[in-house]
Amino acid sequence: MSILNCREINFSYEDKERVLDNLSLSLEPGSYTVILGHNGSGKSTLARHINALLLPDSGSVEVFGLSTSSEDNWLEIRRNAGMVFQYPDDQMVTSVVRDDIAFGPENLGIPRDEIIERVEAAIEAVEMQDFADADPSDLSGGQKQRIAIAGILAMRPKLIIFDEAGAMLDPQGRQDLSDRMKSLNEQGYTIIHITHFIEDALEASRVLVLDEGKILYDGSPQEVFEHSDHLKELGLDAPFSINLISALKARGIDLRVTLGQDELIDQLVEVL
């Protein structure tokens, strides 16, 4: 059974051009899907349909078998489909890390003893024990995103949507975030990562490329990267190292994904 079912959804923001154009999509539980697209391709709009922050003009979205068209389903959907946003600062509600993580469970009316348990577990899961009582505004962007993930984990969701969550981070921060997604996926969470960085797609089990509100490509990273010339035209240009790694991967040579040239050279030397 799929956990997400979008059927022929159309959407436009107030009398402007169509942002989502007759889009259909379904996702398997436990999958790790990267949705790639340049600015304005409709990828963030699609993400917001998944947790009922936006509703389609026509067509239907079903998450965990619940339709987003009924307001009664929203809480259940949002509790099960957590979302980490692009701007780390704009998703912190309070001025203490612990309290911020507790915000979701508080909203759900979870008993206090269990909130305490969940908060501690979530802090541990993102390895932020040393900062549990810090003020989020004193943390780095990457640390803030880890707190945001903890805030979602404390709601005990099944699906986590990362909406350009790495866009404000430096390359190292983005790499850490990507590693974290992979490990969350291994723990059983279904992951959707919305991004315009093509290298984020390498670890995914499925890659979707979105353009003008339509799904252009859909498949494994290797399948999608075969169209790298077309992706380049769409402004989705992979760095050289990624092109090389994916080309080698297609020929059965498995290298660890890296953006650093030195590390790539070291790996190549080892293989040779």
């Binding site: 917001r48 947790n51 922050l53 809480l75 949002r78 509790r79 957590g82 979302m83 946003f85 704009d90 998703q91 509600v93 612990r98 309290d99 507790a102 915000f103 979701g104 469970p105 508080e106 909203n107 759900l108 009316g109 979870i110 008993p111 206090r112 909130i115 305490i116 908060v119 805030g151 979602i152 709601m155």
Partner: peptide, 19 residues
Amino acid sequence: LANAMDARCYTGGEGRTHY
């Protein structure tokens, strides 16, 4: 922020517990 609060199931004070 409003989006982020919605996404984390904020619906106002009713039925809310306290950490």
